[in-house]
Design a protein around this nucleic acid. Structure first.
Lengths: 226, 226
DNA sequence: GACCCTTTTGATGCATGCAACATAGCATCG
DNA sequence: CGATGCTATGTTGCATGCATCAAAAGGGTC
């Protein structure tokens, strides 16, 4: 959905990154340069460049002279990333409200309408992907490329795919979430940046709570990290 | 000031990056791999890895088979980055207010007190560095490592050094700025996250305006930006 | 004199080989 | 039997050489 206009051949970086973010590789799994080189039929050199960049993105950890491992963010990092997610998406909502009519606004309208159907029908799988679309479209609609980049990096680090599946299992959460989406959309259309930002942040915060609570009892215990 | 506790030998990445962010190299200047390799007495391979990462950070542009060039953000990108700066520093202020007493809070107190002196004395050079300290200390004090990382990347992209020198030339801006710093510090100590965030964002926005307005006509002509 | 084609040059892109090091397994010794 | 040192192996770190390609320089023609 995000590369519908043009799909240039995916970069080696993107291909390897998607192997990680898609969950194809388990966290902690070692990533050998030679095996990756063989798999993608290239030399070790371009593989190394990619791995260095993925380390910079926080997806993997290169232990010198030992090996490369898929990194799993600990609980503290997840909380930190969600704090960032909250303000970034809040900024996106505010910017979009200030911007006024744009193609992404129409897309949002469609997504919200469709997600209301699926959430009421209890189709959580469909709704989950529509949630992704909603947030991504909103960020795109902010018309701020640097925001888009930072947001993409953040979502990659979260390996968001791995988390969302859990968050919507809660009965009633999908319906609440859908209602919040509708509120945000209305405020954007009303050109209310402050309201849109505030509501968006509350929405992200609520979703975060839903996502973090079931894993441990205490919400933000920030236990020992590293 | 940022590596007072421990200064491990700066990595190649940091050394090359600082060559760019320090202004030692002009934007548009070509960066040859071989010349860098000779300068740092290493092979082209590690240089290439560093350049790839700097490209990911947005500092340079690698035109395949042509060369590597220092990238200057155009006006639109600068605006985008400052929008991000606003919400990130706002978040930092809010988190610090929620956090309560911490070493960074004491540091802030000292910085603000010292900067009030220099701003009233009209010592803009000293005040400029204290402004840097204020913002950096605030971000550090938020106790969110991911925020620190994103903020560092953002400031690198802005090549902030190159901009700040201009912003404080405006008569009276330093005094206003100093007063805003004091307000923010008070709200943090009062544990008022919302007030601290709001004031911080207003402060960043005001500084941004000061910085962007005067250079409209001459500095950034916004030539074709590829 | 202007334009186009060819050549040359200089840069990156990648493959490969060797060196350095961390780790695990094993033999040896107390 | 446990601890310790040694060796084997697998990994990354880096240097170097060749292939590839883009852009500029040069020569020829109209």
């Amino acid at each position: 959905m995000q590369n519908s206009p043009d799909s240039p051949p995916p970069t080696l970086l993107e291909r390897i990154r998607s192997k990680i973010t898609s969950g194809e590789l388990e966290p902690g799994n070692p990533l050998s340069e030679v095996s990756l080189a063989q798999e993608f039929d290239v030399s070790r050199t371009p593989i190394r460049e990619v791995l260095k960049q993925l380390q910079l993105e926080g997806l993997i950890e290169i232990r010198p002279k030992v090996g490369t491992f898929i990194r799993e963010p600990n609980r503290r990092e997840i909380v930190e990333l969600f704090q960032l997610k909250e303000v970034l998406e809040g900024l996106a909502a505010a910017l979009m409200a200030r911007r006024g009519p744009c193609p992404e606004l129409d897309d949002l309208e469609e997504i919200v309408a469709a997600s209301e159907v699926s959430s009421n029908a209890g189709d959580t799988d469909t709704y989950a992907s529509q949630v992704q679309d909603f947030h991504q479209t909103l960020v795109d609609g902010a018309d701020n490329n640097k925001l888009v980049e930072q947001y993409a990096r953040l979502m990659n680090q979260l390996a968001y795919f791995r988390l969302v599946r859990k968050t919507l299992k809660h009965p009633g959460r999908a319906v609440d979430s859908s209602r919040e989406h509708r509120q945000i959309l209305t405020m954007i259309k009303d050109k209310d940046p402050f309201g849109a930002e505030t509501t968006m942040r509350a929405h992200v915060f609520a979703s975060t709570q839903e996502l973090l609570v079931p894993q441990t009892r205490t919400t933000l215990s920030l236990e020992r990290d590293s």
